[in-house]
Simulated scan of single mutants.
Amino acid sequence: MGGTDLPLVLEFGGGAELLFDNVKKRQVTLDGSKTWKIKELLGWIRDNLLRERPELFLQNDSVRPGILVLVNDADWELLGELEYELQPNDNVLFISTLHGG
C-alpha cells in the first residue's frame, strides 16, 4: 500500500456491540505501510477492541456463523470474505443475527 495510514470505520450492531464496551461505531487507523485483509483486521480487533467473550465473535480465524459482515454496505461474501484487501475509509459493519431466548 505504501501509505502511512489506513483509516477505517468499524461498526458493531445487533448485540455484537456488547462485546466491545457497548460502542457501536469506532474510527480506527491501522498501519498503512502494509496490506491489510479482513483476516488480519479480525486479529487486530481481537487484540485491541474485543473486551469479553471472544468466542461469541470469533471462531477459528473468522467471525462466528451468525455474524453478518458488510464492507461499504456490500456483503463480504461478494468481496472475497477474509481475503478482501481493505482500502482507506472502508466502513466494516459486523451485525450479530443471533439472539438469546
Results as ranks from 00 to 15, higher is better:
V23P: 00
A74E: 15
K39Q: 12
V69Y: 01
N89D: 15
T35G: 03
N48P: 01
V69T: 15
D31S: 10
K25H: 01
W36C: 11
D21C: 07
F20R: 03
V71W: 07
V23M: 11
F20I: 12
L49M: 06
F94V: 09
L68W: 01
P88G: 05
V63P: 11
I95Q: 02
L93S: 13
G15M: 05
V23A: 04
R26K: 14
K37N: 06
I45M: 15
L42N: 03
N60D: 14
E40A: 13
R26I: 06
L30P: 05
L56E: 12
W44I: 06
N22I: 03
Y84R: 04
L58P: 01
P88W: 02
K37I: 11
F20K: 00
V69W: 00
V28A: 08
I67W: 05
V23F: 02
P54V: 04
I67V: 13
G14H: 04
K39D: 12
K34I: 14
W76I: 14
L68H: 05
L70D: 01
D21Q: 12
P65W: 06
W44M: 07
P88D: 06
T35S: 10
L56A: 13
E85V: 15
L19C: 08
G32F: 04
A16I: 09
R64H: 08
E77W: 00
G14S: 10
F94H: 11
L68G: 08
D21Y: 04
L49G: 04
P88M: 08
G13Y: 15
P65L: 05
Y84F: 13
E81T: 11
K34T: 15
L78T: 13
G66H: 11
L82H: 10
F20C: 08
N72I: 01
A16E: 09
E52Y: 02
V69R: 06
R53E: 12
E17W: 10
D47K: 14
L56D: 04
V92A: 09
E17F: 08
Y84V: 05
G13M: 07
D73L: 11
R46Q: 15
F94N: 03
D61T: 12
W36P: 07
L42A: 06
L49C: 11
V23Y: 01
G80E: 02
E40P: 02
L30V: 04
R64Q: 11
K37P: 02
G14I: 07
E85M: 04
G32R: 10
F57E: 02
D73M: 09
R53W: 04
V23C: 06
D47P: 11
I45H: 03
R53G: 08
L56R: 13
G14C: 01
F20H: 04
G32D: 12
L30E: 09
R53L: 12
